[in-house]
Design a protein around this nucleic acid. Structure first.
Lengths: 210, 210
DNA sequence: CTTGACATATGACACCCTGTCAGGTATGCT
DNA sequence: AGCATACCTGACAGGGTGTCATATGTCAAG
C-alpha cells in the first residue's frame, strides 16, 4: 500500500511517477523492473521513491489496483453486450485484451500500457494478479449483469469457482498467445475451444455400466 | 540446458552442486534465489557455476526436468490405482503433493525438497513450470494408463486441453493451499469441488427457450 | 518574528548480486 | 618435451536495493 505521503503529493508529480512506473513495467517483466529506471524516468531522487512505496511489489500492486477497476468496467460492459452470458462475455474480453496488447504502439495511452504490463507480468505472477484483481469483489460487482440461468449452479460457491476457473484460463491463454511465435490466432482458437470444454464438462455423460 | 562439462563432472561434485541448488530453491522463491548462496553451499568458485549453467533459470529448468520425471511416475501410478480415471488420479496426486509439501521436515529427502521448491515457485512461475513439465510429452506417457471412455472427448485436441486445465487448476490450488493461513483443508475442499465442476460442466444443461 | 514540531526531500553509503574474462592448471596425445 | 584441449578460478565492472543522517519546507502558537 502506498504511503499517505504519496496520496498527498501534487497531482503532477504523482502522475509523472506512475507514468514512469507504467513505462518500466510495460518494458520488462516484474523481476527485471528496475526502481532505478523508474526514478530516473520520473526525475525523482532515490530516497523519495521509498518515501512513497515500500518496494517494487508495493508499487506493482497499486498499478494492478487501477487495472482492476478498468477490468471490472470492461467486464460489466461485455456482460451487458452478451445478454448476461458469462462465457460469451469472457470471450469478448479476451478479444479486447488481445487486441489492446497487440497494438502497444500507442504507448501514450494509459490503458494500452496497463495491458502491456499485464501481458508481460501475467506469466510470471498470476498470484499477484489474482491478489490485485480480487475475484470475490469482482464477483459481487458482476452478478447484477449476469444471467444466472445460463449457468449450471448447484452449490453457493459454484459461481465463485466458475469465475475463478474462467479467469485463470483466460489469463493463461492470453499470456500464451502473447508469448507465442505463431501469433495470437492459435492461442485464440485454443481458448475458444477450452471455453466450450468448460461449458459442456469433461466427464463422459453416462458412466459405463459393466 | 546445462553444459556438456556439467554432465562430465564427477558424480560427487555434481551431486553436491545440485544438492545446494535444491536447498536454495526450497528456501526462497525463484526471484530471491541467490547463485552466491548456491556456490557457497556447494563449495565451488563463482566462475565454475557459469561453466556449467548459463544462469539461474537454466539451473531451475534442469531441476524441474528431474521433477517432471518423478511427477510422471506418480501420475502413472495414480492412474493405475484409480482404474484409469483421470480425475480421481489428479485428486490422488493432489493429496500426495500436499502431504509431501507439508512434511518438509525431512528436507534431507530429495523428493520432499523438490516439492518444497515446487511449492515456493509454483505461484511465481507456473509458465516455467509448464515449460519444464511439458504437458504434451506427459500426455503421451499417460494415455496408456487412462480409460478414455470416462472422458467426454469430441475433438482430437480435447484430451490435451483437459490435461492442461486440470494441471493448471491443480497447481494453483496446491499453491493456494500452501500459502493459506487456514491450513490445507479449505483449499483441498475447494479443489475437490472445482474438479466436480469441471467434470459436469458449467453451462446450464438446457438452454432457456423463450 | 521567532520558535519548535512535524512532514517531506535527498543522495551518499553499505551491501548484495550477477556475468565475464584473463590468466592459471590439468590431462592426454604425438 | 611440446602442444592442444578442456577445465578452473577469483578479481572485477557494472548494476541493483534499501537506509539514514542531514537538509529543507510548512505551519501554528507564543
Amino acid at each position: 500500500m502506498p504511503t499517505d505521503t504519496f496520496f498527498r503529493l501534487p497531482q503532477e508529480k504523482r502522475a509523472k511517477l506512475l507514468d514512469a512506473a507504467l513505462e518500466e513495467f510495460s518494458r520488462v517483466p516484474f523481476a527485471q523492473v528496475s526502481i532505478n529506471k523508474i526514478i530516473q524516468g520520473a526525475g525523482i531522487p532515490r530516497g523519495s521513491f521509498y518515501m512513497y512505496f515500500a518496494d517494487k511489489e508495493d508499487l506493482f500492486r497499486h498499478l494492478l489496483g487501477t487495472y482492476r477497476q478498468r477490468l471490472c468496467q470492461l467486464a460489466c460492459q461485455a456482460l451487458d453486450d452478451c445478454g448476461g452470458d458469462l462465457f460469451a462475455a469472457f470471450v469478448q474480453i479476451y478479444g479486447h485484451m488481445e487486441q489492446a496488447a497487440a497494438e502497444k504502439r500507442s504507448c501514450a495511452e494509459d490503458s494500452t500500457r496497463l495491458l502491456a504490463m499485464f501481458r508481460l507480468n501475467a506469466p510470471l505472477s498470476p498470484n499477484l494478479l489474482f491478489q490485485a484483481i480480487q475475484p470475490e469483489e469482482l464477483l459481487t460487482q458482476l452478478i447484477p449483469h449476469m444471467d444466472l440461468r445460463l449457468l449450471s449452479l448447484t452449490a453457493d460457491s459454484d459461481l465463485s469457482d466458475v469465475l475463478h476457473i474462467l479467469t485463470g484460463i483466460t489469463v493463461s491463454s492470453l499470456a500464451a498467445g502473447a508469448a507465442s511465435d505463431a501469433g495470437p490466432e492459435p492461442a485464440r482458437q485454443h481458448y475458444l475451444h477450452t471455453v466450450q470444454l468448460l461449458k459442456r464438462g469433461m466427464a463422459a455423460p453416462q458412466p459405463i455400466s459393466h
